[in-house]
């Protein structure tokens, strides 16, 4: 699912509520039939600027979540090695984040949450600071990861193309007071080739019209 809407309409706040970081004022959050009280083990959250700790190396950042959950060192090692290898970061394991490019930082952040084997992945404008090429490459990577791990992803974005490319459902939010304007079904999303299909452009146009109305 992709969430799109004008600045300040509460997209990020919504993610914080879903992550259990902000107490919701009214209403309840149900995850798989259970009430959400505080951060859940099944949910992982990638913040807007990735939230990598500058004083930890790539390796330590990837292992951090596992360390907090008391995963044994041996399991931390095998999981982190496999993830860094898969995301093409094996050569950067001892780098500090300041030495990484934006795309590399994002991949480290992805590795860090995947290490926790979540069922739901929340992402706040994950690719906004990247150039077009790294963005499209990482979007493809994200699709693979979703298929491989059978993840539910909720992604907040400013980019209409990104929302349409990644979201099987696209939630359009309106200007303050924030309301859900529509949830558009987008069943063809999920394949790298979708970017050049006619339905992709048609859906983009439709979403653009809706956003501009708000």
């Amino acid at each position: 699912m992709a969430i799109i809407g004008p600045s300040g309409c509460g997209k990020t706040t919504l993610l914080y509520i879903l992550a259990g970081l902000t107490a919701h004022v009214m209403g309840t959050v149900m995850v798989n039939g259970k009430h959400l009280k505080g951060p859940s083990r099944d949910t992982s959250f990638i913040l807007q600027d990735f939230g990598l700790l500058p004083w930890k190396t790539v390796w330590q950042n990837v292992c951090l979540g596992m360390k907090l959950r008391g995963v044994s060192r041996k399991d931390q090692k095998s999981t982190a090695e496999a993830l860094l290898e898969g995301l093409g970061l094996a050569g950067h394991r001892d780098y500090y984040p300041t030495r990484l490019s934006g795309g590399e930082k994002q991949r480290v952040a992805i590795a860090r949450v995947l290490a926790l084997k979540p069922k739901i992945l929340l992402m706040d404008e994950p690719f906004s600071s990247l150039d077009t090429f790294s963005r499209e490459k990482l979007q493809n990577t994200l699709l693979e990861i979703r298929e491989l791990n059978r993840l539910t992803m909720i992604i907040v974005t400013h980019s209409i193309e990104e929302a349409v490319f990644l979201g099987n459902k696209i939630m359009v939010m309106s200007q303050r007071p924030a309301q859900v304007k529509a949830i558009v079904a987008n069943p063809n999303a999920g394949h790298p080739s979708y970017r050049s299909e006619d339905t992709f452009f048609a859906t983009c146009r439709k979403i653009r019209e809706m956003v501009e109305e708000t």
């Binding site: 259990g20 083990r41 913040l47 939230g51 004083w55 907090l68 959950r69």
Partner: peptide
């Protein structure tokens, strides 16, 4: 704040945050 949030979302306790964020940041 984002460092706190990022750790909280992984289920960190106060002690975890002091150890992993506050201590190295203040050093």
């Amino acid at each position: 704040e984002k460092y706190y949030d990022s750790l909280l979302s992984m289920g960190a306790t106060d002690w975890d945050i002091i150890r992993e964020v506050v201590f190295p940041a203040a050093l």
